[in-house]
Simulated assay, not measured.
Amino acid sequence: MAVLVAGALPLISRKGRNGLLQYGLMLLGAWLLWRIKYYFALPLFGVLAVLVLMGWLERRRYPYQKVLLLGGMALLLIGVGLSQLHPNFYPSRFFEVLHWNYEAMVALSEPGRHLQFGGLEPTPLSVLQHSPKALAGGLLMPLPLLPPLLEPAYLLAGLENLLLLGLIVASLLKLYQRRRGVQLPPQALVLCGYVCLLAIAMAIASPNFGSLLRYRTAYLPFAVFLMLYWLFPLPWRKRVTP
């Protein structure tokens, strides 16, 4: 994943050199990610493609609203196309696969060591109803609050999640304080959507805390980057006016 993102960054920002080595890194990273974790690869392919498109639109001075609109439409179309690359992503099967994975992982997990979504059904509405809890679980669980989770490994993970909770609260407070006139970059909104969707999907498909801690490495770095970038903006982020 890191190889793919590193290869795509010059295309997104138009900073750095674009050459055969860069495109080779992108292809290698895409192939490796597809072979290892296709369910991480497809969402990331779509997000990177939209980020490249948004960067292209901004460099041609498209208005902010039009960049959002065209980027959203492109994300939808690309998502529909990419969903045809693997049977588990077919719209007719996706929610059934999600539900089957949840039931299988719960059956293999010890009591108190997994997320629970009571009444979950393989339907879009049911998944949507459980999405808030899944989002919180995908980002912040496990927390070191229950006796079964006070073992060293879970305790360390819980302390990390408490730090993440602090970052989330601080980010939301700053966003609330600057709610008037704030205009978040379109790329940040796309990445936020990617983080939220993947956190929800991973929390439901892999509710066991041990596996969830491993799988969230696909989206947690993006979440931390966005929060740190928002809380501690770098000097070069500011525009220089003559």
Results as ranks from 00 to 15, higher is better:
residue 187 Q to R: 12
residue 191 L to Q: 01
residue 116 Q to S: 08
residue 105 M to N: 14
residue 158 G to V: 07
residue 198 L to H: 10
residue 153 A to S: 12
residue 104 A to K: 14
residue 153 A to K: 14
residue 194 Y to M: 06
residue 91 P to K: 09
residue 130 H to M: 11
residue 97 V to G: 00
residue 121 E to V: 06
residue 90 Y to V: 00
residue 202 M to V: 13
residue 210 G to D: 11
residue 111 P to N: 09
residue 122 P to K: 03
residue 126 S to W: 07
residue 113 R to M: 12
residue 196 C to R: 06
residue 144 P to Y: 04
residue 94 F to V: 06
residue 203 A to E: 03
residue 196 C to N: 05
residue 99 H to Y: 15
residue 132 P to C: 05
residue 95 F to M: 08
residue 206 S to D: 13
residue 165 L to V: 09
residue 90 Y to Q: 15
residue 129 Q to V: 13
residue 115 L to F: 10
residue 115 L to K: 09
residue 136 A to P: 03
residue 117 F to Q: 03
residue 154 Y to S: 14
residue 118 G to M: 09
residue 196 C to D: 05
residue 157 A to M: 13
residue 153 A to E: 15
residue 165 L to K: 01
residue 203 A to N: 00
residue 213 L to R: 08
residue 142 P to V: 03
residue 171 S to G: 04
residue 119 G to S: 03
residue 109 S to C: 04
residue 190 V to D: 09
residue 181 G to K: 01
residue 138 G to I: 10
residue 109 S to T: 06
residue 181 G to I: 00
residue 135 L to K: 05
residue 198 L to V: 11
residue 156 L to N: 05
residue 103 E to H: 02
residue 181 G to M: 02
residue 192 C to S: 15
residue 131 S to R: 03
residue 148 P to T: 08
residue 131 S to P: 05
residue 194 Y to L: 07
residue 140 L to A: 06
residue 91 P to I: 07
residue 134 A to E: 05
residue 169 V to W: 13
residue 204 I to F: 09
residue 101 N to C: 10
residue 182 V to A: 10
residue 146 L to G: 00
residue 130 H to W: 10
residue 199 A to F: 12
residue 115 L to E: 09
residue 139 L to S: 01
residue 174 K to T: 04
residue 97 V to I: 14
residue 136 A to N: 01
residue 115 L to H: 08
residue 208 N to S: 13
residue 111 P to W: 01
residue 168 I to W: 11
residue 157 A to T: 07
residue 212 L to S: 01
residue 120 L to E: 02
residue 139 L to Q: 07
residue 182 V to C: 02
residue 124 P to K: 06
residue 90 Y to K: 13
residue 157 A to K: 12
residue 168 I to Y: 08
residue 201 A to R: 15
residue 100 W to C: 00
residue 154 Y to F: 15
residue 206 S to G: 03
residue 188 A to T: 11
residue 105 M to P: 00
residue 192 C to I: 11
residue 92 S to G: 07
residue 120 L to I: 07
residue 175 L to H: 10
residue 204 I to S: 02
residue 172 L to N: 02
residue 201 A to F: 14
residue 150 L to C: 02
residue 149 L to A: 10
residue 195 V to T: 02
residue 118 G to F: 11
residue 172 L to A: 09
residue 166 G to S: 08
residue 205 A to T: 06
residue 105 M to E: 15
residue 191 L to W: 00
residue 162 L to G: 09
residue 189 L to S: 07
residue 200 I to T: 02
residue 200 I to W: 07
residue 203 A to H: 04
residue 132 P to T: 04
residue 103 E to C: 03
residue 91 P to W: 11
residue 213 L to H: 12
residue 124 P to W: 06
residue 177 Q to M: 04
residue 127 V to I: 13
residue 149 L to I: 05
residue 206 S to H: 15
residue 171 S to T: 13
residue 129 Q to T: 10
residue 176 Y to T: 05
residue 181 G to H: 01
residue 209 F to L: 12
residue 121 E to G: 04
residue 148 P to G: 10
residue 163 L to V: 13
residue 107 A to Q: 14
residue 187 Q to G: 15
residue 211 S to H: 11
residue 134 A to D: 04
residue 187 Q to P: 02
residue 208 N to Y: 10
residue 156 L to T: 13
residue 169 V to P: 12
